[in-house]
Design a protein around this nucleic acid. Sequence first.
DNA 1: ATGTTTTTTTCCTTTTTTGACATAATAAGT
DNA 2: ACTTATTATGTCAAAAAAGGAAAAAAACAT
Lengths: 305, 305
Amino acid sequence: MVKADDIFLFVEVVDEGSFSKIAEKFELTNSVVSKRISRLEKALNVQLLYRTTRKLTLTDAGSALYGKARIAKQSLQDARDAVTGYGETLKGKIKVTVPAVSADIVLSNAIAEFCQLYPEIEVELFVSNRMVNILDEGFDLAIRTAPLPDSSLVARRLMDSHWVACASPKYVAQKGMPQSPEALIDHQCLVYKYESTGADRWSFEQDGKETIVSVNGRYQANNLDSLRQAAISGLGIAYVPKVLVHEDMLNGKLVSVAPLYCAKLMGVYAVYPRSRQPDKKLNLLVEHCREAYIKKQEYFYLTEG
Amino acid sequence: MVKADDIFLFVEVVDEGSFSKIAEKFELTNSVVSKRISRLEKALNVQLLYRTTRKLTLTDAGSALYGKARIAKQSLQDARDAVTGYGETLKGKIKVTVPAVSADIVLSNAIAEFCQLYPEIEVELFVSNRMVNILDEGFDLAIRTAPLPDSSLVARRLMDSHWVACASPKYVAQKGMPQSPEALIDHQCLVYKYESTGADRWSFEQDGKETIVSVNGRYQANNLDSLRQAAISGLGIAYVPKVLVHEDMLNGKLVSVAPLYCAKLMGVYAVYPRSRQPDKKLNLLVEHCREAYIKKQEYFYLTEG
DNA sequence: ATGTTTTTTTCCTTTTTTGACATAATAAGT
DNA sequence: ACTTATTATGTCAAAAAAGGAAAAAAACAT
């Protein structure tokens, strides 16, 4: 029944020593101030001020309330100050979880750039292929390769990531070029494995039809770049994001395998909690990553064109 | 725009970890809690909680607000506790200003009795004939002999005080009994004087007609009892409250002078600030004083009968 | 997929708050 | 003592806000 804001108004009135001054200051009418103070007195069942038209005098009770409420008021102001402009300021920490496959490629650079661009924003990167619970573990942002693992989150597509199977020209010359996805079964495949997430099922598609092949491989790595190096050295066929091996393919170190089939298209998404209040720095980071991916893609077009 | 009570509701919600639990606890509906938290977020322009149906998770901003607001909430609670029941409890101090003439008589005893009756109430007595400004000087109660010196105050009649002129039988025998008020001019009058308030104008009335006499006196005192003693010793005629000399007159130490004229009737009033919130202990004290006066008057009736 | 629990939205009613104005009170100036 | 200026309060009608019920949506669990 006692309204906190009435108490704070009372503090203001005491500070100023006048109802009307406070009314003016807060753009209220005198009667409103009068009524709210009266209401407070009624709610507390105690007289706080003796009023004459010229002077306000604190009662003992009023004095006691004033002394303590002043502190509370300041304290609450501090609390408010702590969060005002929180969504707007370009300060603070962003905790990001990134799957290892994505961290390897564009993102690391993009985030490094971002940190240089906004020196007051701190980014904490947590690389893990484990599907972390963003909310539970206090992440602000996750990069994912599936659109919506959790519907209380919001997903924004950053890019479409093509994955390709590739090998060194030497390997192809020795073992022959597989003519279909199924033919990969008889080849030496380099398998990505990270935190028990074995990616030994490779996906290809053409004309909307998807073909999944369970491949075999004696060589496994938890790092895509290691797979890439292994492929270059002729160890076998690697299935990796196109961006990773684009240059190798341009300068002939690697060639695409099963050329008749388009490698599967996988989206890369920024996933973050659904918020009705926008967090500016978070949006900036997401946007920065998206642009980094777009630039990378433009680079493809230029070199592939 | 940000409502303090919304912030405190937010603190409650975080403590409980659920909107609906808090709704139940405070007898609100879920929708109200939801709306108020949402409103708070909108007002602060920041997301405070991530909600799922199973769990509420604090955002960084929410966490910052919670930490500080919790302190403010406790602080405000302390402030409220400091005054709740203030008007009802029989504790605390009552500052009373009493004119010397009244303090001399019944009041001192009455107040002493009152203090014994309510051990937790402290009474601070300030004896002064100066007309103190109750509000300015922080008094809770004044005893006055005039009904309403200040209209922002409230006055309650405690008793009607008769003042009488009296002298020792010896004095009357030597100097003669004055037959009219005017005759007092030729007599040795004992004048009450306190803080420059000279009471050398004595008032008598009969049949509604008032006669004021400016008396002369070589003996002045700031204490009515001294005047009484002086009168008993035969020094002259004293003009004092009847209660003061009632017993002296009964046992013949003093006799009333100018017996044909009734001494003036003066009211004794309790004067205190007009308060819309009753202060129980103050009312108790006033009532106690009133009863003390009434008892004293009953005693007169019995002995004068 | 289905059901359950929790939050949110919607729509409507009730309550509160507000400002304008009139009134009352009083301190200060003349 | 009289006037004047300032200040607080009461009243009333309009506006705003809060509140509640129920349906909808969301998030999980199974």
